[in-house]
Structures are given as C-alpha cells and as structure tokens.
Design a protein around this nucleic acid. Structure first.
Lengths: 253, 253
DNA sequence: TCAAAAGTGTTTTTGATACACCCATGT
DNA sequence: ACATGGGTGTATCAAAAACACTTTTGA
C-alpha cells in the first residue's frame, strides 16, 4: 500500500508520462496441472482482486504499451497478446475515482479522471511467468478459472469478455503454442481445450482433428512415470502453426 | 471548408466538450443494386476521402458516442453497430496534426493531439440513409467497394480491418437484417453475401443453408415486374435472428 | 491380474458440394 | 418459342460424432 505522499508523487509522474483517459487491462491466461488460470492482483487492504493493467505513454503505440505492462507483471517478453474489446462506460471507474479523490487533492489529477480501457488477452506459458505485484498491490498470483475471487470495478466483465473471445477464437484458430510447454502429450493438449471450452471432448475425435490441422510433430519419446500407458510426446510445428493462424482453420463459406 | 476563425472556435469548443486523445471512426456498410457500399466524406480542397468519425463527450459512453456520430452522418437511429478494433499508433494522425498545426496556434490544441481511434462498423439500410457532410467536408456519399478512392490517414487500414472482421463474422453469425429492406428475395440476399465475401455462391446450396438457419419467414407474395419467374419474398424472423446472433450459427467444437 | 489411461481403429450421421430438371415470364 | 432467372430435388463426398477393441503400466 502506498503512503499518501508516494501516491501524490506517482500521480504527478503519471500525469507527465501517460496519455489521459486511456488505460489498458490484460487478461493473462495460463495453464497448469489441467487447470486454466488467470493472473490477478490484490492489495492487502482491499478485498477485491483486479487484472494487470496500466497506461499508455505519450508517444507509445498501444501494442507496445500492452506488451510493456505484461512484461512488468510477468517477466515475459513477446507473448501472444491480442486486443479484444474497449470498455468505455463513464461509470466503469467510478468506485476507483471516489477512492482516490478521498486521498488525492481535489481537482484535476491523473487517477480520478475517466478511463477508457483497452482490453488485451494473453496466452502464456505458466512456468515462465514470474508474477510481480505493481505499486498498488502486494499480491500478484494465478487464480483458478473455477475458483475466481471478487473482482474490482468492471474487471469481471473484462475477464468474461476475454474468455468468450478466446472460446470463439478456438473454432477458427489454432491455440496452444503459447500455453503449452515445448513438449506435451495429446491428453494434456486436450485438457487445455476442454478447460477453455468448459466441456468434455471425445479423446479419439479430438486427436484426429488436431492432427488433421497438421500443426503437430509427433516425437519418438513418451511421457514415462505416469501410472498407465505412456503417452507420446508432441511439439508444435511453428511454421505450420503460424500459417494456420493466418489462414484460419476452416473457411466457413 | 472552414475559415481559420471557424476552426479556432470549433477547436475551443471541442476541447471543452470532448475527451482528449480518443476518437471514433465508423465504417458504414450499405447495399444497393447488388453493390456493397461504404459511406465516405471529402472536403473540396483535399483529394483523399475519409470515414465518418468524431469524438467522445466527457460523460458519454463510447457506444452512445458511436451511435451519435453515425446518426449525424446518416440520419439513422439504432442501427447495427459493432466495435471491431482500436487503432493506436502514435503516427496515425501525423499528417492531420501537421495540417492543423499550420493553421491553428501552436501549443496544446484539440486537433493536433495524438488520437487513439476506436473503430466501429455499421450495417445499414441504404435507402434510409441521408448522407450528411460534417463541418470539415462538403461531400458525404456512398462509395462502391470495388471503386474506392484514396483514403486519408490510416482510414484504408480501418476500412480493410472492418471488412475482414465482417467477413469473419459471416461464418458464425447471421447477417442481413440490418442491410436488407423488410422484404427481399433469396437472390437479393445471396447477392449481399456474395458481395461481402467477394465470391460467387451456388444458388441452391445458399438457399438451403440460409433456410437451415431458421431465421427467415417465407412470404406468400412474389416480387413481380422482373423479366423472369417471380421470386418469393422473405422477411427476417427477428426473434430467431437475434437468438442466432447470441448463440452463433455453428459451434466449432 | 486388473483397473485406468492411452493407442488405433470402424460405423454412422451429417453437412457441404456438385449437379439436373422443371417452371414462370417478358421479349 | 425461347432465353433467362428462379424453384425444387438428388447424388456424391468429406468431415464430425459415436462407438469398440487392443495395449501398456503401476499398484
């Protein structure tokens, strides 16, 4: 938690560096132990959690800003990041505004203005992320998709919209390269799809379809140590994967 | 074309009314005589055309702003309007900035600041639109999709992104209610799809598929006066249409 | 040795595509 | 009467969905 003085200093600096009225919020999806996760933050003296976010520097492209914000929260560079919606209700930051206007001097100041937030969602490799709190929080950690906390502001809407977009994306784009480790088994990849979609898929049909996309390399080795028959390992064929991203998986018409 | 004084007055007013740094651009699609059209504007003393656009009032939701901007250019209220992308490159309004900084006093002024533009696309009934120029232009008119003029700024990118989004949309959402008149024939609807997609479709398969969606009502009457067999008239079943919008037309997985 | 997970099929159903025939209408 | 566009139907093919059997492995 910031002291009043720290907040005032930060406010003054922010007003110099950043564009007014524009913020960025990121929904960072990760996958671990068969569970879909979102990266979230929390301050010790608030109950509700919020999404990683930030502002756009005066001469910075918004994509660069989103990457920078993500990098500072995760330690990651160059991840899959996609703009999905703009949240522009004038009341969306009301509670926040009221909170800060108690602490900060009245009148124009950076934090109490109206913000229009550009939503990005990211797909990242769980193991590479080093969750890093921002200046407003002490806690930055993964939350299970089926055990979500109370959200601040409209962050629940932002999260839900991101998830819906991701699900839709799944039907015409390959997904997984950014979420899975280098090598993985077919059941592991299936679990990812099932988690995103929130439903069970047929093992055999899933395998046929995924292989049909032609974006996987089957490796020689198997994943040993499991309690049952050892599954084969696969990796993504990056070239073909990226081609599929461009072309799309099915034409529609 | 505005005089220098008019521009200065408008600038001062805009700075009071509107949020800094945020603009809205609309790609308005219409359909007439088997041709897809976009609504565009042009000033007499500039060569390049631009898209209908505007700014967000200080306490106005962005959806409301987009609707207001559209309403002032078309006379329409409550049309299909969808946010599709944010354009946030710091150089995107460079040329504009330079242009205005010649005319307007140096230093901070509304028109020479950096703008991040929220792109909306609209699907409207051609016949209901009354194209209305804005304060910067004398011409506001429909342009054929296959006879497009030179664009200002990054408006070509905005237009192309809108078209791509619309095409993608077509594969998982019904379209047409907002573009077609109340009553229409199957060949007319097919022409719409063909124009959006930029390719020919099989007459019989198209009909089967569209009817399969269950969003059309077949009317008793036929469209007479044509030089051939009179085609049946159809209308959209609004209830089922909106349900299909929500559900999507195919699941994917 | 057996339960559970994984590999590898086949059958069935559905939807997309391609194609054929007849009907109505204005010239 | 005929060319043209429109209504309706069928054959074919490919992909999705449903389903079955065998293999491997640790407990």
């Amino acid at each position: 938690m910031l002291t009043k003085q720290q907040l005032e200093e930060f406010e003054a600096e922010a007003g110099m560096m950043y564009l007014d009225h524009i913020s960025i919020d990121c929904v960072v999806f990760g996958f671990h132990e068969g569970q879909m996760k979102v990266l979230m933050l929390k301050s010790n003296n608030e109950e509700a959690w919020y999404l990683p976010g930030g502002f756009v520097m005066k001469q910075e492209p918004i994509e660069v800003a989103a990457n920078r914000i993500l990098a500072t929260r995760t330690g990651l560079d160059k991840v899959f990041l996609k703009q999905f919606h703009v949240f522009g209700d004038p009341d969306r930051s009301k509670i926040h505004n009221e909170m800060y206007s108690e602490v900060l001097p009245a009148g124009n100041n950076f934090f109490t203005q109206r913000f229009i937030s550009i939503g990005y969602y990211a797909l990242v490799d769980f193991f590479n992320v080093i969750p890093t709190p921002d200046v407003f929080s002490e806690i930055c950690t993964w939350r299970d998709l089926d055990d979500l906390p109370k959200f601040q502001l409209d962050h629940e809407l932002i999260f839900r919209t991101a998830l819906d977009t991701l699900r839709l994306q799944l039907s015409y784009q390959p997904i997984g390269y950014n979420l899975m480790p280098k090598e993985f088994t077919m059941p592991e990849l299936q679990k990812l799809y099932e988690t995103i979609l929130g439903k069970k898929l047929d093992r055999r049909n899933f395998q046929r379809r995924i292989l049909g996309f032609g974006i996987l390399n089957k490796l020689e080795q198997t994943r040993k140590g499991g309690a049952h028959k050892a599954p084969y390992l696969y990796s993504f064929d990056l070239k073909k994967y990226q081609a599929a991203l461009k072309e799309g998986l099915k034409s529609g018409w």
